[in-house]
């Protein structure tokens, strides 16, 4: 029974940030909610086997990363790589004349993010928006800290080149 109580505390403490991570990885898509449930169901089933000393936050992020990758795969099969642009994500711009152009830029950027390898996208979101340490990210991605850093670096480098390529082809 104590594990049930402890797991309630885990939900209370981490479900918000895990949801924001899934929202980012899944581009605000409506299946983020389903994915959150799947993550915590998996965690719940494995919770009793978890080492008392384990880094629960990193462990949850690891489950969330793996689950979100399979959700993305399912969605890609379902929507045949059609890009999902949520209006919530494409934030409104002040000037209406700029709106179309800036929306187009955001669309290009999101397309580029969608085309990143899963590990690079995860590493970028974990570092930049979830604000995890490279020690945690290396645990989540089961790699060395150097490799975790390299994934963030490569993600940014790739985004830059994909976005500038697209933009120059527009001009």
């Amino acid at each position: 029974m104590s594990s049930t109580l402890n797991f309630d505390a885990v939900i209370e403490r981490y479900s918000g940030e895990i949801f924001s991570y899934l929202w980012r990885i899944l581009n605000g898509h409506e299946d983020a909610e389903d994915c959150l449930q799947e993550v915590f169901l998996r965690a719940y089933r494995a919770f009793n086997r978890l080492n008392q000393e384990a880094n629960i936050r990193a462990w949850l992020y690891k489950i969330a990363t793996n689950t979100s990758i399979s959700f993305r795969k399912k969605r890609i099969r379902r929507e045949s790589q059609e890009l999902y642009v949520d209006d919530d994500l494409a934030s409104p711009e002040p000037s209406p004349s700029d709106r179309t152009e800036s929306k187009e830029r955001l669309r290009i950027l999101m397309q580029a993010i969608n085309n990143l390898p899963n590990r690079q996208r995860s590493a970028l979101m974990l570092r930049k928006y979830q604000e995890l340490s490279y020690a945690d990210i290396s645990e989540i991605l089961s790699c060395s800290q150097e490799s975790a850093r390299a994934n963030v670096y490569q993600a940014l480098k790739k985004l830059r080149s994909m976005v500038s390529e697209q933009l120059s082809s527009l001009e």
Partner: peptide, 24 residues
């Protein structure tokens, strides 16, 4: 800044709350 425009804010509070309720 474009990345921030898309991702910095995160999901809105109401959506998060609803997702947490559904999860529970």
């Amino acid at each position: 800044s474009a990345l921030d425009a898309i991702y910095a804010s995160g999901p809105d509070a109401q959506r998060t709350l609803r997702a947490q309720e559904e999860l529970c």
